[in-house]
Simulated scan of single mutants.
Amino acid sequence: FVNLSISYLSTLYVTCFTNEHTASLPNVAPSGTASQSSTYDSVTTASKANDGRRVSTYADCTHTAMQTNPWWRLLLPGIYRITAVNVTNRVEVPERINNAEIRIGNSAENNGNNNPRCAVIPSIPAGQTSTFQCGGMEGRKYLTLCEVEVYGAASLPNVAPSGTASQSTTLSDSARAWNAIDGKSDPVYYHGSCTHTAHDQSDPWWRLLLPGIYRITAVSVTNRDELAERINNAEIRIGNSAENNGNNNPRCAVIPSIPAAQTATFQCGGMEGRFVNVYLPGAAKVLTLCEVEVYGGTVRQL
């Protein structure tokens, strides 16, 4: 279930990735069944939000009757790992989307609105789209949706633990490269589950060598609980070249920042490679990672 429950939600766009062996993963939201708490008129049915048309005018949107706690729900044909949800706001009365909740899970209790919360939508400018990261999670007013896409994959696994981790330098025995793939997302550095390069190094890096070539859909990074700004502008690079320790491979994303002790997910769109690097360019840098999760499927074992 992908639910939206809000004061007023104008537009939502959800795309589900299902085939880890396809570089351009399809939007499977149209394969799901949409429903909503009520329907304002015959034009604004629930299916308008997953019809594949990202149009934010009224006739192309859903709309509930005026009610308490309205919701819209998408029932997918299977269990999916949802990495992100894009929300496109309506051009009129954009403030009505403020404080909408996106909820994802497998329970039908309370029409799906008791499932874990992916995000709260603080606001979106009129007619604009915002992306909300869901980190691989397995909705007396009106509610209007113009389109819904769920970015995710059909239970794609975290393949990072199957690889071998290394890093440019290691500060101490308790800060080894392997700590980032030990399955523990503990953000407290002094608990011994984070990596740490030597101080004041130029261009520090952390690298995961996978046992084959994988198509990577997303990478999640957990930041430490203090000195959180040290990760700012780190780059995620994916590919098959070992040149420059793998740091010359194509770039999936730049990490602008991650709040202290939080996890952020970056979409890589099915990039292929056996190296996944977190690379921090610049002089006098320190790179610390408390967990790195890599979601994808095997293209070829080596």
Rank of each mutant, 00 (worst) to 15 (best):
residue 208 L to A: 11
residue 178 W to P: 02
residue 122 P to D: 14
residue 238 I to R: 06
residue 117 R to G: 00
residue 74 L to S: 08
residue 7 S to M: 01
residue 56 S to T: 15
residue 41 D to M: 01
residue 168 S to N: 09
residue 124 I to M: 09
residue 200 D to C: 06
residue 119 A to H: 09
residue 48 K to Q: 12
residue 155 S to R: 10
residue 294 V to W: 04
residue 94 P to R: 12
residue 229 E to M: 02
residue 6 I to L: 08
residue 116 P to F: 00
residue 194 C to A: 06
residue 200 D to Q: 13
residue 194 C to G: 07
residue 213 I to M: 05
residue 175 A to E: 06
residue 63 H to K: 07
residue 173 D to P: 08
residue 100 A to I: 01
residue 36 Q to K: 00
residue 60 D to C: 12
residue 90 R to M: 14
residue 166 S to L: 03
residue 19 N to I: 11
residue 131 T to Y: 02
residue 302 L to F: 12
residue 297 G to H: 06
residue 25 L to E: 11
residue 113 N to G: 08
residue 224 R to D: 00
residue 174 S to V: 13
residue 74 L to A: 02
residue 259 P to M: 03
residue 284 A to K: 08
residue 146 C to H: 03
residue 4 L to Y: 04
residue 103 R to I: 00
residue 149 E to G: 03
residue 23 A to P: 08
residue 296 G to Q: 13
residue 302 L to P: 03
residue 144 T to P: 07
residue 229 E to V: 12
residue 127 G to Y: 06
residue 297 G to P: 01
residue 91 V to L: 08
residue 155 S to K: 03
residue 119 A to C: 11
residue 203 D to H: 11
residue 128 Q to L: 05
residue 20 E to K: 03
residue 107 S to E: 09
residue 295 Y to G: 02
residue 70 P to M: 14
residue 202 S to F: 06
residue 149 E to S: 10
residue 126 A to K: 09
residue 240 N to L: 00
residue 105 G to T: 03
residue 183 G to P: 11
residue 207 R to C: 12
residue 159 V to R: 12
residue 62 T to E: 04
residue 37 S to R: 02
residue 38 S to T: 15
residue 41 D to V: 05
residue 95 E to T: 15
residue 299 V to G: 00
residue 88 T to W: 05
residue 197 T to W: 07
residue 86 N to S: 15
residue 108 A to V: 07
residue 299 V to C: 00
residue 108 A to N: 10
residue 200 D to T: 10
residue 230 R to V: 14
residue 203 D to V: 01
residue 290 C to T: 10
residue 164 T to R: 15
residue 187 P to V: 12
residue 100 A to F: 03
residue 287 L to A: 09
residue 180 A to E: 07
residue 146 C to K: 06
residue 219 V to W: 03
residue 140 R to E: 09
residue 255 I to T: 06
residue 48 K to W: 03
residue 148 V to R: 01
